[in-house]
Design a binder for these strands. Sequence first.
DNA 1: CGTCAAAGTGGAACATGTTCCTATTATTGC
DNA 2: GCAATAATAGGAACATGTTCCACTTTGACG
Lengths: 201, 201
Amino acid sequence: MNALNSLTQEDLGSAAQRERRRRILDATISLASHGGFDAVQMRAVAEQADVALGTLYRYFPSKIHLLVSALGREFEEAQARRAGKPIPGDTPAERVGLILGRTTKALQKDPNLTEALTRAFMFADASVSAEIHHVGLILTSMLTEAMSGRQDEGEPTEEEIAVARVIGDVWLSSLVGWVTGRSSAEDVEKSMTVAIRLLLR
Amino acid sequence: MNALNSLTQEDLGSAAQRERRRRILDATISLASHGGFDAVQMRAVAEQADVALGTLYRYFPSKIHLLVSALGREFEEAQARRAGKPIPGDTPAERVGLILGRTTKALQKDPNLTEALTRAFMFADASVSAEIHHVGLILTSMLTEAMSGRQDEGEPTEEEIAVARVIGDVWLSSLVGWVTGRSSAEDVEKSMTVAIRLLLR
DNA sequence: CGTCAAAGTGGAACATGTTCCTATTATTGC
DNA sequence: GCAATAATAGGAACATGTTCCACTTTGACG
């Protein structure tokens, strides 16, 4: 286990530690939701989570690890909420459009949180690759499931994965544009519609 | 003129000021090239450019402005070097693949510089939108020119622009993956090949 | 030339991410 | 239960982006 990685669930034997980790991530989400990336200050997170600054750094070796881990937890929860519910729509384009639109709208309801998590994701370097990869997998599987219309049963094809990656990239780029105030919510929707039309026809 | 924006050429009447601006950007590129994003420290830039720290902030209101402006200058120079030279290749896919491959290879020759500029680009917020937009335009026009095979004469179609944007997004996302050490140079090439195949067929 | 405003200098001061150290508390192996 | 080990608390210290200020230089104008 690399010391640069943040502690994952498996490493945390004791309930008290899982509890601390939860409190830290809760504080992170709460602060991010109020004031975005800049409001997630390590001292503030530590205080709100009721742990010492050193402990915070023991659990998450940097602010970026912390935020990307929080993003990972959010994605997991969203994935769990989707589980078992088939995505409506008759064509891959419809289903992907629908789920992306739904997710985008959910993100846009909490702009500060989205800004904090998105920027951390884009700024993360190699030391965060495990957490990043985790998030990437959930995103890709969300898209391939929407494309194929099936859930879990049956692996996606290479082609489906390739298309999902491209769509995911476009989605991320346009989210970045939105969270940084360079483009509007409608612009994001429009980009996604165009990308889906070009890729899923 | 918004005080938050960096001084552009037009604002700089005196030759001494243009000269200072050039020295600052030169120092930025030089430091970035040596040690990447982290090595571009404002005090170091000021010292190497032989200006006071306050003056540096007068010209560029933040490190991100500074780096994105440097990226803008590099893009302009690259665009000027391309001017007039037709892109070889018989199909849009070939031409786009060629020019993207060429550009990617050039960037990969100076990983530190690329890392610094790319991260600044992705981290930039709304106060940098002018500079970001400038870079975005050059990138899009590079791609539409490659697609159509013509230079300047004749505006690109809506469809060409839409495809160029998607390809640009994928390219940026995969560059981010590369500069942050999460994917290899070959991965970038592969992503681009796949995106081009999916979009330009 | 003398004057005045703008620009530049040098450097202190501040904010926040990160590191480090010591004392205290919890956990674990015997 | 006790000794050893690990984890946490509390907080100082450091690094770097950013702001601010007092002073000097430059350049434009009458």
